[in-house]
Design a binder for these strands. Structure first.
Length: 447
RNA sequence: GUGCCUAUGGUGUAGUGGUAGCACAGUUCCCUGUGGAGGAAUUAGUUCGAGUUCAAUUCUCGAUAGGCACCCCA
């Protein structure tokens, strides 16, 4: 038989397969995230992976460089793969204004695609898990998102994390405070946002090179950023004083005060969040509060759960301007982080019990056993491989780490019994056919 | 878009200017009842192209692909 060698089975760069061992954990994570989102009253939504390119870019040619085009040859050439779930949400709320509640709280999980060069922790296809509130300008909505972020982290079993909060309006006030052209704002924010990565010296260098700030301007910025590690009320006092000349900054400060009051009432402990004046977020659409979550034991991987307020996005599609705030879980990054921290216990299987069968005559008896287990909601399988002796079948069960092994051959069939084996304690007992679900459950509760 | 690194069976790797080795996976056979299997046989590989050389998987150059970092990240 000749083998087909002309087809390359390697995946394209930036794409990956998730094998069962990994998928079991990922799915458990997603279940927990979804349950938390629903507990906060968010509703599920799904949208196509492919959208019209002009919907995704909003007509701005700058955005199209990272977009995966998906059009058919000779037609529909304007189609492209979505790069996030927020833009499709903006489309949906604009399109179904009469059908959706206001405010609309929705969650959505889905794959997104970006045509960038992949590198560590960055893929060209990745999963986003978003929760957003559209149609509420109240700071309590922002606080709700932060509380949600906190509860998601808790639900995932994480304790050592910190939610960092800032407000874009404060940063937008920097041009007034420091005295540079507000057109440079995007550059300045982007550079400040890199503070953790390139340190203060790197920030100074880039500010001089890119924005052409002089020493005194940089000193002023340093004055501002030095407040970022102070306790909350002190930070607020200091920057209120410092930025009192900027109306927009003061607005941001007031939002921050109101929002954080709400956060406490929503039960987010003070040790879990802090103001960080260097947080800007890359996304240009943020307009107010911005949030990032870092794992305190692994700050190097960056934010695993982040978001913010984007009050102008929906106006791209609709005459009415709907304020919105939301957050997005970086499932892939979170998974990598938890794995590095040893918080993930991989399991090879979901099967709780396996029925071995090495005897043609008693196969039907084995099938009845597995059927009974399944009817009792116990995830179970019957051995379907080629090994005919018990030793071989047992080693399959052990390799797969299935906790309960049931052995039933001719002897057992005659006497209507089953050998039940607790793989972990290595105990084996003979029980009657009817007791199988009960005894399996009993072993499972012990481990 | 820029720079650096890498390329050996399906997977992971070793090694060499002259015959490419190992592990896992696969296939076939053996093993009737208890611990992460065992025994026997077997399939399968130097990314592509050019150059240097008697001889290149090995050295050089190019292409391609992948990884990493930068840029960027709506």
């Amino acid at each position: 038989m000749t083998k087909q060698k002309n087809i390359n089975l390697e995946l394209e760069s930036g794409f990956r397969d998730y094998l069962p061992e990994e998928m079991i954990i990922r799915q458990m994570m997603c279940d927990k995230i979804r349950a938390t989102f629903e507990r906060f009253g968010f509703l599920p939504l799904d949208t196509p992976g492919i959208e019209k390119e002009e919907v995704l870019t909003g007509g701005d040619a700058n955005f199209s460089k990272q977009i995966f085009r998906a059009g058919l040859k000779g037609g529909d050439e304007n189609l492209a793969l979505r790069f996030d779930l927020t833009v499709p949400l903006a489309r949906v709320v604009s399109l179904y204004q009469d059908k959706l509640p206001r405010p609309f709280k929705r969650y959505q999980m889905g794959k997104c695609w970006r045509g960038e060069r992949p590198q560590a922790g960055r893929f060209r296809e990745f999963v986003q898990f978003d929760a957003d509130i559209v149609g509420s300008a109240r700071m309590s909505a922002d606080a709700e998102i932060v509380a949600l972020m906190y509860e998601v982290m808790i639900a995932l079993g994480l304790k050592n994390f910190q939610i960092k909060i800032n407000n874009r309006k404060i940063l937008n006030g920097l041009s007034d405070f420091i005295g540079y052209d507000s057109k440079s704002n995007a550059d300045v924010l982007r550079i400040i946002d890199k503070l953790k990565k390139i340190e203060w010296n790197g920030v100074v260098k880039e500010l001089k090179e890119v924005v052409k700030l002089d020493e005194s301007q940089i000193d002023k910025l340093k004055q501002f950023l030095d407040f970022r590690s102070l306790p909350f009320s002190e930070t607020i006092n200091k920057i209120s004083e410092l930025m009192s000349g900027s109306a927009v900054a003061m607005e941001g400060i007031n939002e921050l005060i109101e929002m954080t009051k709400n956060i406490s009432a929503l039960g987010v402990p003070e040790k879990s969040w802090q103001i960080d004046l260097s947080i800007a977020r890359g996304f240009g659409y943020y307009t107010g509060p911005v949030f990032e979550t870092v794992l305190t034991d692994l700050p190097s991987i960056g934010s695993v759960l982040s978001g913010g307020r984007y009050d102008d996005l929906v106006s791209r599609f609709s005459a009415q301007n709907l304020p919105a705030v939301g957050a997005s879980v970086g499932v892939d990054r979170l998974f990598v982080g938890m794995e590095k921290l040893g918080l993930i216990k991989k399991s090879k299987t979901l099967t709780k019990a396996i029925v071995l069968n090495f005897d043609k005559e008693s196969e039907d008896y084995c099938q009845k056993i597995v059927t009974m287990l399944r009817k009792n909601n116990i995830d179970s399988e019957i051995y379907l491989g080629k090994e005919i002796n018990l030793k071989g079948q047992l080693s399959y069960a052990l390799t797969q780490e299935i906790p309960v092994v049931l052995i039933a051959g001719d002897k057992e069939k005659q006497t209507n019994t089953v050998q039940i084996k607790n793989v972990i304690s290595r105990e084996q007992t003979e029980i009657s056919f009817e007791d199988v679900p009960k005894m399996v459950t009993e072993i499972l509760t012990k481990i």
